[in-house]
Design a protein around this nucleic acid. Structure first.
Lengths: 185, 185
DNA sequence: GGCATGTTATAACACTTGTTATTTTACTTG
DNA sequence: CAAGTAAAATAACAAGTGTTATAACATGCC
């Protein structure tokens, strides 16, 4: 009937996503993706209507990647929000370009930070309940403060203004939680 | 002798800086600056060797703009670092594109966040001394924590994830300072 | 007033981008 | 095996970028 499809959606998306991880989202151009995938630009537009569709797919994949990253990240902290913060800061350090795409670039059509964080598993809600169970009077306010702090540390890793080890970060987050709790009740 | 120079360095830099403030650094291209300045691209390259030189000049101007912004910003806070933070967060809200250029974009040849903050007036050093005078045992550590928090809030304004009023922000920063102090000594 | 000289405008080059028209290729079906 | 058809390659278009060569221009000096 017809020629067999040799370049699949997966191959293109895999390539584009890998390029985003390694070189940044801005490097995902039609010709560069094609070159890395070892084909012309034509299969891309055969599978995706235009580059916007591919870019959206890369964004969705990055969002899913973060969910997975958080899911398997070791839980060393005891206080609420600390494990969420540890994974978040580590993600910013180890996946700079993905972090930038998901949490720094404004961009229309992007999900809110809270939505990305909470994810399908309701990560934030669970942490807030944990804080309430621990006797915190206003866990939402506590989350906001903790999250501002965590986001600040993560963003500073991008510019090289924050460079603490995992152990130091754990200590910093635990102490910060205690600090915020102490003035919250 | 020769034709009088009608398009000056100031006119070009003013235009490029205004474009950065309003539309973002990426919009500062040779043709767009020329169009807005009402001339061809030729005067730009007559005054600057290339676009990199102009971009550097815009960056320097943005850095100076932030210094001025901080200098005249009202001092409503009592605790150390709070006024620095208030001005910083307000700058992120009111000058999104300049904030992005100075404090979010990594880019080579850019100054460190600390250098931009401390400025010519030694803002950070003064605040640290103030904290020490107030009886803080480790003012540098306190500054780091406060700054992570402040930077987090500022960065979240860019993505629309932080939107507290000036009064609320003042309260938040004062309380955060108390929180960090309480676990610091 | 003519003229040399520095400034500006015009136009073009080389490159990159997304996108599309056209051609080639290869595979499945009859 | 031949034919038709879907996929991929080639090539081109239009727009945008930095940069530069060339031409027009105005201005102060002799």
């Amino acid at each position: 009937m017809a020629r067999k499809e040799t370049i699949t959606v997966q191959m293109i998306l895999d390539t584009a996503f890998a390029m985003t991880r390694e070189d940044g989202f801005a490097q995902v151009t039609a010709r560069k993706v094609a070159a890395r995938a070892g084909c012309s630009t034509q299969p891309i537009f055969h599978v995706y209507k235009n580059m916007d569709e591919l870019w959206d797919a890369v964004y969705e994949r990055a969002a899913g990647f973060f969910q997975d990253y958080y899911r398997v990240y070791p839980r060393l902290g005891k206080a609420p929000f600390v494990n969420l913060g540890m994974a978040y800061i580590a993600f910013a350090r180890e996946e700079k370009h993905l972090f930038e795409l998901l949490f720094v670039t404004a961009g229309p059509g992007r999900r809110s930070m809270y939505e990305l964080l909470n994810g399908a598993a309701g990560n934030v809600v669970r942490e807030i309940n944990q804080a309430r169970a621990a006797g915190c009077t206003d866990p939402s306010d506590l989350f906001m403060k903790m999250w501002i702090f965590i986001h600040g540390a993560a963003c500073m890793t991008l510019t090289g203004d924050y460079d603490l080890s995992e152990v130091q970060t754990l200590d910093l987050l635990e102490k910060s939680y205690q600090a915020f709790v102490s003035v919250n009740q």
